[in-house]
Design a protein around this nucleic acid. Sequence first.
DNA 1: CGCAGTAACGTAAGCACTTACGTAATTGCC
DNA 2: GGCAATTACGTAAGTGCTTACGTTACTGCG
Lengths: 336, 336
Amino acid sequence: MFLHGQGELALGSRLKAVSESLYAAANVAYRETGHDLDAHWFPVLRYLQVRGPASVTEIAAAIGQTHPAVSQLAAKLRAQGWITRRADRSDARRGVLELSADAERKLDRLGPVWCAIRRAAAAAAARGGGTLLDALGAFEADIASGRLAADIRSHHARLKKAKIDIAPYRSDWAPHFERLNVEWLQRWFTLEDVDRAVLGDPQTHVIEPGGAILFATLDGEVIGTCALLKEAPGVYELSKMAVESGFRGFGAGRRLLDGVIAEFERRRGRTLFLESSKRLGPALQLYESGGFVHHPAPRPGSHYQRADVYMVYEPGKTAGRRAKAAPRKHLRVVGR
Amino acid sequence: MFLHGQGELALGSRLKAVSESLYAAANVAYRETGHDLDAHWFPVLRYLQVRGPASVTEIAAAIGQTHPAVSQLAAKLRAQGWITRRADRSDARRGVLELSADAERKLDRLGPVWCAIRRAAAAAAARGGGTLLDALGAFEADIASGRLAADIRSHHARLKKAKIDIAPYRSDWAPHFERLNVEWLQRWFTLEDVDRAVLGDPQTHVIEPGGAILFATLDGEVIGTCALLKEAPGVYELSKMAVESGFRGFGAGRRLLDGVIAEFERRRGRTLFLESSKRLGPALQLYESGGFVHHPAPRPGSHYQRADVYMVYEPGKTAGRRAKAAPRKHLRVVGR
DNA sequence: CGCAGTAACGTAAGCACTTACGTAATTGCC
DNA sequence: GGCAATTACGTAAGTGCTTACGTTACTGCG
């Protein structure tokens, strides 16, 4: 192509073309996997998914676009039922955009597609090696030959067939432990000092005192984590359970919970408790079905500001589990 | 920025944003240096400059855009006097777009700006190192901080102050010798076998037989070249003179011509001739002012199909040079 | 407390492309 | 040599952004 000979001068044109091809490739992947959304919506929808309800200007600033762009897209998404808008009671100028429950459910299933796109794109970029121009050239070649699209397809097929694995702590996965937890903490609460300490150095704060950290992986991709903290001899806390948005509903949370309980039992612990919040409805359901029962009073001397739920593990109480798990059956099929 | 955390998934958005920022940065550079054109025109204008007159679909295919895009831009450029359109007599559907003389003159001066943009962009891309994502991040940082714009400015300032240097043959510059000549040969004629041989391996075809190759450089950038070929003992040919489009009118051709004549004289040659074409008006003027006189008959046994001009160097005939050079004075000031 | 300055949007219009479509000329093929 | 298929390319309309502008609400400062 003529522009290749023009070096960096044609970068603008080529970047734009590659950008558009990437949107198109992503859209093909969405369509093929039965997801009805447009790649251009990704920044806004993903922001709302990860960070929770937000105003137009907040989103615009975060994704690097102008507020009219977000405003117009929001109107369209609102018309299609993806998002809702309510007034901000503290500031009448501002509106709060929020994913509809339906959209939230849809997005929670997109993990494998996103992961497939990410892998294919990373592979294409890496093939170029060295410079930006080389990487761009490799991208263009992959797009022109259809290799990018084929790669997305095959990665997605692999991910859909893959099973969730539970793996023990690995120091090189410490950043995943932090990333996954920071994501939901920022969304639902704020990072407290206890969190920062534990997440920043899990080795010394969790592993060395006699606790454990488990990772849920799907085809090598870390998509969830959970920790068992040793509080006192025989007393353990289940904590830092996090599953990546986009991979929810595949059973990772259940597997992590079972894994942590197994770790607790391997240590012959006496007491296993957890602290959580009423706001985290689906998580509480999971804990209940896993054998945790609500404790009437809040835990004395809790280290979390946010904790208004205190649950304790009672091995006998796993009866509800099978019943709760049943309606999830079709999800498991999709997930595996 | 939020999108940075999304890895390759946000590549489309980021590429588009960087693309638009690059257009904007280039436009700032054009405006600051007093050039009245839009960065979006670059692919079309540059194609016409380098390859010569072309049809809408040919350009569209070459620059990777759709024909309506080129068609619409062509209409705009035609209205502004940048290009003209005439009918293709062999195919009534097709039109032939051609740069106006004025546009050609403007584009011939853009070399330093283009070079400055290229250098700044290359530096930004290199700062990221490794992967496409890193390079992109570096780009975004440079754009946000204004460093890219500042770099373009300072590179341009350097280039405008720089003088043209004439350097002897260096084997690592052989690709420049080829590139510069292929560019104009493809535009004005076609590559003949003689050309391919000489350009592909100048060492054995030019240097070793006792000839010479000179390069014109501006601040380290190779922008022109010219060769002295040894035809027989004492008989030399001036050939393969080429100056990059974008750097014309800065006196590089004159300097190369003088340099080659000096090489000829250093070798105590008897005869120095050249072959050219009537179609290359400005080049013929240069040769005339440099002391070459037209020979009435074509050269017997010419190796070029395209040659319809045969000139011979006569040392006394350099009188016209000063007169011809005079109106160029302001150009030299700009060029240095 | 009043009121300039600023912030949060929404709307309109523009821009650089695209896809869709129509028309006229050329090519290919029996 | 005739006619279907293809090609060149203009026009219209759509898209995903942008800039420009206006309205309403909030904020800070004398």
